[in-house]
Design a protein around this nucleic acid. Structure first.
Lengths: 261, 261
DNA sequence: ATACAGCGTTTTAATATTCGGAACAACTAG
DNA sequence: CTAGTTGTTCCGAATATTAAAACGCTGTAT
């Protein structure tokens, strides 16, 4: 849903077709031709041609009753089976699993894309108290970096100019009861992350959700990913959680890093 | 110049662009312009324009050193967060988790797409003996139906004409030491599946991999998905495994079905 | 050193491909 | 019945796309 033609020489049709696919979100799982056309500022006929193409290839399906469209199973072919960071994901998988087994909490592996983080692997914690986020977050989910523990980690170790450039384009909107909406406060916290090697998210993304994250470094020392554990809210103080889980988290992150090529 | 494949594709550019994205597989994670052009029978300049478009949108990334391309993080935006069967996935998630906790084995939720099955959720089993498939199969992976337990379940309950039509287009290639390459043998086994309500995969997809699957039914009674547990090979007889795990599997499948809208 | 072969990239003019207005059929309200 | 949707089809216009050729560049082989 970003960016049209900055320069010349790009394929309009491809761009529009992909925009159509991206228009389907969890909040709007089914869309009609007119809705799509309106959203993308295209005519219905043009939209229909793209949609028909996508449907004929299996990326979209048409609902028999309502005539509207939804995503088809083939979207899962698109890159999901591959993925830029497949190697990292494979290396991390058993360690994530162990992290969840020892802590009992859901653990995630995330990378940064622009000012967002993307979950590239996750191991669910014990059943029982399933939180709302358990269902709204999947592998592939995209979350703003500024209000997540993994995001803070992935921001913190960037060169300062890059941090500024990213934050320039982001509005620090209130997502949870304790979201850091003040840029200076966020920058201070990023410094804290660099000092401690840990980031926390204390109900900043969503109410009742806490999380602690640690950086995963490549051989070069560069922070290439972050792992975290998601913790449902409890009366325990955040500092206690950090001192209890932080070392385990960092040890896991280091184990992963040690196996990265 | 050329018409699209089966006269289906209406927008040539969109079809070609998506073909480029799909050309990236786990086996071939990075591709150059020339490779892509050769594979898709396009000229390099045309290929380059599509690739540049995809790269400018974040779906591809260019390696600084080799100048070749790999998938970018944005591919994960494509539909994965939504998906036709998201509801089913959400409903099934805690049950899959419990299934893995009680059996210790990796469990999966799969739907059918044409003659393949697609994993739409998975809960990894205990660490320890990580099998090769642990790494080659992810959510989103596509496997031939005829040589997997979930696939047999999803084939078995189709109307007979549909089964025939699907199998007409599939070659029963040997994938594992015990793959059913004979169509009649496969059809007989599908009947067995309908009788017992369980399907097995005894080293048919890959050596040392066994699996047992059960159908998940919608309110209407239609089989809409399948769940399975993957079992590393052991000297235990398959029939023993079935009698031990089958009831649990079916109970889980029924639990899920009972909660499907 | 030189020539070569391959790569990704840019430019080009010609046209196949795509565009979008208008019209259609089906459906829902009022 | 009319008036407003919706998804869908048609078709001439024209634009966005195509592919050949040339450009640098990087290696390798001579």
């Amino acid at each position: 849903m970003r960016q049209a033609t900055d320069g010349a020489g790009l394929s309009q049709s491809l761009e529009r077709g992909l925009a159509i696919l991206c228009a389907f979100t969890p909040n709007r799982p089914t869309l009609g031709i007119s809705e799509l056309a309106g959203e993308l500022s295209l005519t219905r006929s043009t939209t229909h041609r793209y949609v028909a193409t996508l449907a004929s290839l299996g990326f979209l399906e048409q609902d028999d009753a309502t005539r509207k469209y939804r995503l088809g199973p083939r979207v899962l072919d698109l890159g999901f089976s591959t993925l830029a960071s497949l190697e990292l994901r494979e290396i991390a998988a058993p360690h994530l699993r162990r992290l969840t087994d020892t802590t009992g909490h859901t653990s995630n592996l995330a990378i940064r894309d622009d000012a967002d983080v993307i979950l590239i692997d996750r191991v669910r914690g014990r059943p029982g108290r399933y939180h709302h986020l358990e269902f709204t977050l999947h592998v592939g989910s995209r979350i703003p970096a500024y209000c997540s523990a993994t995001g803070k980690v992935l921001l913190a170790y960037l060169p300062r100019p890059d941090i500024d450039r990213l934050l320039d384009r982001v509005e620090l909107v209130q997502r949870g009861p304790r979201t850091l909406t003040d840029r200076d406060a966020l920058l201070a916290e990023l410094q804290q992350v660099r000092r401690t090697g840990l980031a926390v998210n204390d109900e900043e993304l969503e109410s009742a959700l806490r999380s602690i994250a640690a950086p995963v470094r490549a051989r070069s020392g560069e922070v290439v990913a972050a792992i975290n554990v998601a913790i449902p809210w409890s009366p325990v103080a955040m500092t206690d959680l950090v001192s209890r889980l932080g070392p385990t988290l960092q040890a896991t992150a280091n184990d992963i890093a040690a196996r990265v090529i």
